[in-house]
Simulated assay, not measured.
Amino acid sequence: MSKRSDPEAGIVPCPTCRALVRGEAAARAEDDWSRATDCRVLLRRHHLADHQGRS
């Protein structure tokens, strides 16, 4: 997991990012690897679209 989306590092810049990071963590806790992957993909797309690829 990259530093920009690491909730333990405390670097999660916006509400959408936080929601996707929390969603991934919840999915991983439930062993729902497909949903966890979906959250990572959505987070990456969000970063590219709304943060111009920056964290």
Rank of each mutant, 00 (worst) to 15 (best):
I11P: 01
H47M: 13
V41C: 04
R45A: 11
A49Q: 15
A25R: 07
A29F: 03
L20D: 03
T37G: 10
L20H: 06
E8F: 04
T37F: 09
C39P: 00
R18W: 01
E8K: 14
L42C: 04
A27D: 08
H46F: 05
D38K: 11
A27I: 01
E30H: 11
R54P: 00
A49G: 12
R28Q: 12
E30A: 15
D6G: 02
P13A: 13
A27T: 05
R40M: 14
M1Y: 04
R35Y: 02
E8D: 11
W33P: 01
S2D: 15
P13I: 10
R40Q: 09
L48N: 15
S55P: 10
T37V: 05
P15D: 12
D6Q: 11
L43Q: 05
D32L: 02
S34M: 11
K3R: 14
D31I: 02
R44T: 09
A27W: 02
H47Y: 07
W33N: 09
H51M: 05
P13E: 08
R44Q: 09
T16I: 11
W33K: 10
G53C: 03
D50Y: 12
R44I: 04
A25Q: 12
R44K: 13
P13F: 03
T16F: 04
E24P: 00
V21H: 06
D32E: 10
H47G: 08
A19Y: 03
Q52W: 06
I11V: 15
W33H: 10
E30R: 14
L48K: 12
L48W: 10
S34Q: 15
D38E: 15
S2V: 10
I11K: 11
D32H: 02
H46D: 08
C39Y: 00
E24W: 00
D32G: 02
V12F: 00
I11S: 08
S34T: 14
R18M: 10
D50L: 10
R22P: 01
A27L: 04
V12L: 10
K3M: 11
D31T: 12
R18E: 15
R44V: 07
L48C: 09
C14E: 03
P13L: 13
L43I: 02
R54S: 12
P13T: 07
T16H: 00
D50Q: 13
G23P: 06
R44C: 08
R45N: 13
D31H: 13
A19E: 09
V12Q: 05
H51I: 04
E24C: 06
G53M: 06
W33C: 06
C14M: 05
G23V: 02
S2L: 11
H47R: 15
M1N: 07
L42Y: 01
R45M: 12
R28H: 05
R22F: 08
R45V: 08
L20E: 01
P15G: 07
M1A: 14
W33M: 09
S34P: 00
C17R: 00
D6N: 15
H47S: 11
W33T: 13
S2I: 09
A49H: 04
D31C: 11
A36D: 09
R35A: 15
R18N: 06
